[in-house]
Write a protein that binds this DNA or RNA. Structure first.
Length: 230
DNA sequence: CCAGACGTTGTT
DNA sequence: GTCTGG
DNA sequence: CCAGACGTTGTT
DNA sequence: GTCTGG
């Protein structure tokens, strides 16, 4: 899964994407650092607008085409890479509305029974990353929505959870961001789990568990009063 | 044909 | 337990 | 994902 | 929107 993440160095994240795409982002603005993005919140997303890479604000939790105009809308924060090409909820977006989700890290929670222990996963060099996303256009007064594509966990993330976001680096970000539909081989190649050596895991303060909490404390180490090992 | 469900995550 | 809000 | 709320009826 | 069940 991947339903909580950070973009606490947004300028670096956007610059990295501009480098990978070899293009300036239209609509680029100064962004506030975010430490605890959760479903239903607005987040910065890079998508094509009139064919050009553009920075926009979208709501986390994709509204499937079938729920357009519905009374009861079900937002989907994740989509399994293995099934996006065939499922009605994701098929159109997978073919023509793939996007990049600027991120500095993502959280996973270990279920300890009595509490949820949060972990932060970043690139090993702490550089920003791009997560694979899908998006849907605005629905009436509602803003555009996006979801994060997931794949099987690698060994690093697997210690905490069995799913992780698709992390796009360099060339794979540009390919994911291409205009034309991907065939199944290309899709499979692009959505492989990140290499183990690429990721670094850190325990963080359970302060982050509450999605209303924001700020640097979300990525800080757990306080010393919190003694358990795992 | 229409009506209704559909997709994610988690379940030691 | 299940659903909603963030 | 986690945190937190959650429901009916009748009554004033 | 698209698929399934009736």
């Amino acid at each position: 899964m991947c339903v909580r993440y950070t973009v606490h160095k947004p300028e670096a994240a956007l610059e990295a994407l501009e480098g990978v795409l070899n293009a300036a982002l239209r609509g680029k603005t100064l962004l506030e650092p975010r430490y605890n993005i959760a479903p239903s919140q607005l987040a910065p997303i890079v998508a094509k607008e009139s064919g050009e890479p553009s920075l926009g604000s979208m709501r986390f939790g994709l509204l499937p085409p079938g729920d357009r105009g519905a009374e009861r809308k079900r937002a989907l924060p994740n989509a399994r890479a293995e099934t996006i090409a065939g499922l009605p909820a994701f098929r159109a977006a997978a073919a023509g509305r793939r996007c990049l989700v600027p991120a500095c890290g993502f959280y996973e929670f270990r279920d300890l029974g009595t509490r949820k222990q949060p972990w932060l996963f970043t690139l090993d060099d702490d550089e920003p990353m791009a997560l694979a996303g899908l998006w849907e256009p605005p629905d009436g007064a509602d803003p555009p929505t996006f979801c994060i594509v997931t794949t099987t966990a690698n060994r690093v993330v697997g210690e905490v959870h069995d799913r992780m976001p698709v992390i796009l680096t360099g060339e794979s970000a540009a390919l994911w961001f291409g205009d034309s539909p991907l065939n199944s081989a290309e899709l499979a190649q692009l959505t492989l789990p990140a290499a183990d050596g690429l990721l670094r895991a850190r325990r963080v303060d359970p302060y982050v568990n509450n999605s209303r909490h924001e700020g640097p404390r979300c990525v800080a180490p757990p306080p010393p009063e919190d003694p358990e090992l795992f």
